[in-house]
């Protein structure tokens, strides 16, 4: 049966450990992988622009010796003419070996996966899932901390619409000794389904708070997210909330010396530039991890050893 990656929860802990091991091996010896996907094509079907994610996928495929086709926004694609996601996916499956799809509507990559015989990777579906970002985060944490268990993970910012946080919680709750500190304004707390179906259902320790500084000393990981303008219906709410949770050097005074600060990028101003030179800032190393874990994922889904 063909494999897809739609939701991070499609992957078992063993799958994730295996992907991380392959990514580590690629980092150690990239030449070994330079021809693994020769004559294979990745289709990047991006119905909304996300240059960073698309380039990461494309760079990953090129580094595996493969090729890339696709589109980078909906109005240059057949979607602009009203073609269904299923029909586009079926068509593309005639040309490509694997699809990475980004779409503003939730579930679109699932529709593609159910319509084709080739693997489909969800490269972000609205505010819903973004599993390759989560794999990126996991590889980053594994490399920075040397482990994925026994960690206190702080998630800060827009926890309501911040899908990267939902997926991170969904993936990390399976590791023993992981607890979450959820830092957000009242208006942007995690959705009920994450709280009940993941955290409470699995008896995971978590704390919800408004105060970043107060919890800073406890954190092993600080996962910052952007408060996105497009998720708000009303400009006044956005202006009022966007600056509430900005990480500045003074807020790090009582942080652990080996704290790892992650951010899915791009940032606006939620992390002060002054922090970039702090060794605890991992977000640019995180981008590089994104390419390597996508290489490992493409190999896995294509069944290339």
């Amino acid at each position: 049966m063909k494999k897809d990656l739609i939701d991070i929860q499609d992957l078992s802990r063993e799958d994730i450990d295996e992907l991380i091991a392959v990514a580590e091996d690629i980092i150690a010896d990239p030449d070994k992988y330079a021809e693994k996907c020769r004559r294979k094509k990745l289709a990047t079907l991006f119905y909304e622009p996300s240059t960073r994610t698309r380039l990461s996928f494309e760079a990953a495929m090129y580094e595996l010796g493969g090729q890339v086709i696709g589109f980078s926004e909906a109005n240059s694609s057949s979607a602009a003419k009203g073609e269904s996601v299923a029909d586009t996916a079926r068509t593309v499956a005639c040309f490509a070996d694997i699809i990475a799809m980004r779409h503003p509507k939730e579930g679109a990559p699932m529709v593609a996966a159910r319509s084709t015989h080739i693997p489909v990777i969800n490269a972000g579906d609205g505010g819903h899932n973004h599993p390759t970002q989560t794999l990126t985060d996991l590889l980053t944490i594994a490399r920075e901390k040397g482990r994925l268990d026994d960690l206190t993970i702080g998630c800060c910012g827009d926890l309501k619409f911040g899908r990267t946080v939902h997926s991170l919680i969904a993936a990390m709750h399976r590791y023993p000794g992981v607890r979450f500190v959820l830092i957000s304004p009242e208006e942007l707390v995690i959705p009920e389904h994450v709280r009940t179906d993941i955290l409470q259902a699995n008896n995971i320790e978590f704390l919800e708070t408004r105060d970043l500084e107060a919890v800073m000393p406890e954190l092993d990981i600080l996962y910052m997210t952007r408060v996105q303008r497009e998720r708000f219906f009303n400009e006044a709410d956005y202006i009022r909330l966007k600056d509430s949770y900005i990480l500045t050097p003074d807020k790090l005074t009582y942080a652990k010396p080996d704290l790892a600060i992650l951010h899915p990028l791009p940032r606006v101003n939620e992390i002060a530039v002054a922090i970039d030179s702090d060794p605890r800032a991992c977000y640019f190393r995180q981008v590089l991890c994104g390419k390597y874990i996508r290489m490992a994922l493409i190999l896995k889904l294509l069944g290339v050893k």
């Binding site: 939730e106 699932m110 529709v111 609205g126 505010g127």
Partner: peptide, 20 residues
Amino acid sequence: NPRCITSIEQELQHVFKLTD
């Protein structure tokens, strides 16, 4: 859900799964 793909693709069947 107005953000769901089913909200813009009329032909798509709505499918629900038992989660609890």
